[in-house]
């Protein structure tokens, strides 16, 4: 019995017992795998939750960075515009808007303390916003260029044809008094004509969106899409040149 001979009985015993061992080991291994997987699943779930929170946080941060980047681009654009101007423009923040559907005025945070006077021109890099109408010590009210009461001497930039640009509320502008014989097409740029002394010449106002020729009358009916998006005004620039005063001193009238 003692020796290194692994006889038939040994082999038979091994063959009988080993399958049991195998079965138990397999079963235990399966259970162990299952329990490990189960425990791992818990930790994966926890990890997943943590990662989801992290993703949410990063997405929020990404949104903030995107907004900050857009603000940066917008401000850079404004700064470039300001630096290009001959006169020192005064930047102002839009703090309030006319609540009416035909919204015609905005309020800005600059006033008499910043030498703002009624009649001063308000601009953005895109073009004319309007004119200051009422001023208090620290705030000013601006009549938007697309208000129906607004009228600006304008011209079709390419053809040099002049007319009066009237505000038409949500529709933008209508360019009046342009003769039928004038060649005006959709997409033509409209700029200030510089007549009347209120606006300097060449400031963008918009682009022609429709041209109609009426049977009667000698003028064209021209619709103009404003260059400025009046609904999205956040910052504007006020031209501190008191043109009205200059004109008064020169004994010239202002329209």
């Amino acid at each position: 019995m003692i020796g290194d001979r692994f006889g038939v009985v040994h082999q038979m015993t091994l063959d009988v017992v080993s399958p049991l061992q195998k079965a138990v080991t397999k079963a235990f291994g399966g259970f162990s795998d299952f329990s490990r997987d189960y425990i791992d699943l818990w930790s994966v779930r926890a990890e997943n939750k943590r990662l989801r929170l992290l993703v949410d946080k990063y997405m929020n941060e990404l949104g903030e960075y995107r907004e900050a980047y857009r603000t940066y681009l917008h401000l850079q654009n404004l700064l470039e515009f300001k630096e290009k101007q001959e006169f020192n423009l005064l930047s102002a923040r839009v703090i309030g808007k006319d609540p009416a559907y035909w919204f015609q005025t905005i309020l800005v945070d600059r006033g008499k303390a910043d030498d703002i006077e009624p009649g001063m021109v308000v601009l953005t890099p895109q073009g004319v916003v309007g004119q200051v109408i009422h001023v208090s010590e620290h705030y000013a009210k601006v009549l938007l260029a697309n208000a129906p009461s607004s009228a600006i001497d304008a011209m079709v930039q390419k053809r040099r044809a002049r007319g009066i640009l009237k505000g038409a509320g949500e529709k933008g502008f209508v360019l009046n008094y342009v003769l039928k014989k004038t060649d005006v097409a959709e997409g033509d740029h409209i700029v200030t004509a510089g007549i009347g002394g209120v606006f300097a010449a060449g400031i963008p106002l918009g682009t022609v969106s429709a041209v109609r020729e009426k049977e009667r009358g000698m003028f064209l009916e021209i619709e103009v899409q404003p260059a400025v998006d009046f609904q999205k005004l956040e910052y504007v620039f006020i031209d501190p040149t008191d043109r009205q005063k200059i004109l008064r001193e020169m004994n010239l009238t202002v329209e």
Partner: peptide, 19 residues
């Protein structure tokens, strides 16, 4: 509120004249 926040709401929501 009418002169500040109400403008940032989408127009399809409507902007009633609360005053």
């Amino acid at each position: 509120l009418e002169t500040t926040l109400l403008h940032s709401f989408p127009s399809w929501l409507g902007r009633p004249d609360f005053i």
